[in-house]
Amino acid sequence: MKTLLRRHGLALLCAALAICLPLCMEDSDYAMRIATMALIFAAASQCWNLSGGLANQISLGHAAFFGIGAYTSTLLYIHLEVSPWLGLVAGGMLAAVAAAMLSVILSRLKGHYYALATLAFAEVLRVVANSWSSVTGGPIGLTIPFKGDAPLAFQFSSPAGYYWISLGLLALCSLVFHRLASGASGYRLRAIRENEVAAEVSGIDTFRLKLRLNVLSGALMAMCGTVYAQFIYFFDPDSIFSLSGISVKVAMMSIIGGLGTLPGPILGAFFLVPLEELSTSFFSDTAGLAQCVFGIVLIAAILIQPRGLMAVWGLRHRFMKGART
């Protein structure tokens, strides 16, 4: 218990604070909505971090899985009245299959080529969702029928409900990340990241390991998509399969926070989501400003500190430790 506290004291404190937050912010719906959005994106970014940060598979198409999740649960609910809770699982399974297929097809690709292929995959789904109107509703998008207070239909009257679910989702994604990043699989993944050929020669089944990461990453990403759809009630193909709105954003959060680290995506999301919110609410009639600022932040982060906020924090941490002894 003592070692647990010492090693994960900060993380436990953050978790405890995060769980209690809605109790003291119940009267500020707006702040709760931003916090929930940040949690959903932190979870999605953690999914990206699973394949992008751990195995160096830089995907520019994670919106594909996000959209699969959102469409699966919403279509099941609208047409067959299946509860989005089951839709969440169905979406995850469908995305797992899609991720497995994609992983097998693209197993030989690295770096730029992998990024290009995943980008095209999300674009394919966007085109399909836009043109297959009879099923997907086409470019108009889908609206989730409003039920109000119906926890069984994944709808809550207070923002706290969505908040806790998103927090749980983030915890799940982070737990999966932690399990894979530590222990034997962590060593294998680090070997792949440093030198894939050398890892392969040392007897690591890189194909299977990457497949496992991609399937988990895709399935969890789809769950994020379902929660996102339930939270905002409306989405269309261009926003849910968006390159800059989803795919780049989730990757960017990991990079700005700290690629391949567990707190990275969380830091990144809690930096970028409020930043976006601030710039849209301050300059509401200036379209494009938030995205423009994002681009500048991304460029600056890569040029100044490619290892992200975590590295900045790590430096300070080490400095304080040094001062204490």
């Binding site: 960017m252 423009c292 681009g295």
Partner: peptide, 27 residues
Amino acid sequence: RVLAAPPAAQIFLTVGLMMVLENGALL
């Protein structure tokens, strides 16, 4: 500055540039 950096840095530098140019034009 990123010519010697890993692909991730190169990809996201140009992606950042893409966002700045597109939304800069919008502004």
